[in-house]
Design a protein around this nucleic acid. Sequence first.
DNA 1: GTGAAAGCGCTAACAT
DNA 2: ATGTTAGCGCTTTCAC
Lengths: 352, 352
Amino acid sequence: LERSTKEAVVQGGRKAGRPTIIDVARHSGVSKSTVSNVIRGAEHLAEDTRARVLAAIDELGYRPNALARDLKRRRTATLGVIVGNLTNPFYAELTRHIEQHAARLGYATIICDTDGAPATERQRVHLLLEQRVSGIVMVHFSGELRLIEDAERASVPVVGVSVCERRFDCVATDDEKGARLAVEHLAGLGHERIAFVPSGYPEAATNAARQRGWRSAVRRAGLPQLDVVNFSPMVPGASQRDLLAALHGPTPPTAFFAGTDLTALELIDELERGGLSVPRDFSVVGFDGIAVGELRRLGLTTVRQPTQELANLGMERLFARIGAGEGGSSVRHTQRRLTPELVVRESTGPPR
Amino acid sequence: LERSTKEAVVQGGRKAGRPTIIDVARHSGVSKSTVSNVIRGAEHLAEDTRARVLAAIDELGYRPNALARDLKRRRTATLGVIVGNLTNPFYAELTRHIEQHAARLGYATIICDTDGAPATERQRVHLLLEQRVSGIVMVHFSGELRLIEDAERASVPVVGVSVCERRFDCVATDDEKGARLAVEHLAGLGHERIAFVPSGYPEAATNAARQRGWRSAVRRAGLPQLDVVNFSPMVPGASQRDLLAALHGPTPPTAFFAGTDLTALELIDELERGGLSVPRDFSVVGFDGIAVGELRRLGLTTVRQPTQELANLGMERLFARIGAGEGGSSVRHTQRRLTPELVVRESTGPPR
DNA sequence: GTGAAAGCGCTAACAT
DNA sequence: ATGTTAGCGCTTTCAC
């Protein structure tokens, strides 16, 4: 006997939970498989059967159970995204594009905001793996390679978007090139002492790349190599000290290149809080190209990342892997670097 | 025969997929159930059995399959979030708090950015329902009640955070009160002609509440009732026209209360683009309390929503429903309104 | 304390 | 064109 017969008895008196495919089958007088065929839009179905089934689905308010489907199919239409901080407009924008791209392809997106904490990141990646996501997008990566291996072992493809690691596919911005654009712009304006202000927002690796780009561009321009200015408004007190030290040192910078737009904006805020003026006393360049920077009041000169393209290419890469059933450790990972664009606004000008 | 025996044969030559509970069972010489007990941290387990199982799990790199677990248990540890636009810092912050609250309780969060489109919203809610999420957080709601009924029918509790609807539980900001705070602040500065600038960012209902609050506060203060100023920088051309009409009309406003901070910032930008100055020529108050508004360059006076509390109370409400197995249509929905706080900065001052 | 059995709701051969 | 069957990987009584 088919199980349905048994259930028919059990369910004599109004079933508890939500209607299942079996309820629909009974209600429309066909078998489970036929209902399944209708749902999945199979071909070779008599028009009237399909109609009857559809009617039953509607009447019962039936909704397929993705859990059961995915368990059987051994694959989900779910993606995971690891992001460091949704509050940073750049990441919010990136995440938004990623989610919308995924949704367009019928994928649900589990978004995990790790606050940049490695422990949280680990916990979340494992959560995603247990959920059997079909792929993981790292918008932030703390660098714990163990996690990538775990994903590989589970044959879950990983792609980095705006982060780069040779252990997984990634599409990121050419950070060094971007830094060079910033420095050349400043040098072109006549600045000779250009300092770098690292940001705590992106992962260390990204920040380091921008710092490298700054360093080499400064060298190439024949300008003096200044110390990095550690300015962190998150750590109250610490901020002023380092910044003041730089400003009152023997060779005070006349321009700053900040690791991210957010840091650039905070820096400007801090400078002006001290009675200084941007760009009159100092020029400041950011990195990212977040929307608020466009406001005339801010007028932030920045290195704009191609956000939309970053997301799109990353997703294409990921779906290519998913489609190919790849994700193992044998595959050769591709590293794609997109070229950023310098956007000149009013936070930069000639040195005083 | 237990199925395991059959599988033992089938799997003679290295199994294809990922290890299952059965692999662990065989590897440690116990039964499926025992492994299950270990995983779930059941009590009354011999210490050495537990150790052996744990060792096997580690060796095989076993990871429980949440799909199978949830299917069997008939409930997931997954939440859905519907948000209108992650790019708006206020929503990004709210979403972040929601996700982190959920994660702390072991829940995964499927975040859906609907771009405010009702069709997208409907599609996503249904997606969530098929995923059998345990609850849905509406950070944006287009107003399609059908969706709420669908969720109710599936006994999936819904809670609105920062949106209010009497058809589901919600915790939102007291928009009318907030608007009143804004108007009273402006009136206190001596402004007599205070206009409202609606925002396209929150749903119509929220915006309408703020507009109502403005209207009644203006009336109560005995000030003239001005027309609403439709200023939408998203619709190029349309923006300037409406704004200019207001500025050059017979009774030009001296202050603007904008529906959201983003709109306030865009308004200031537009005014100043036209050579006007804020707060010298016009005062502007926003609503939300987004972080960038704190920058001295912007110095936005605003009505700050208690974001963190909004998220926390909303989640507590949701989890209370989930725990109670509620979500049906019989429950009485609670509406909670939190009081916002006026934050005075430099975008407001006495009228010229 | 541990094991056997019975599904959760669905898909996908394979029959008919 | 439709039905039958055998699971997907796990939880959870209920025996022993």
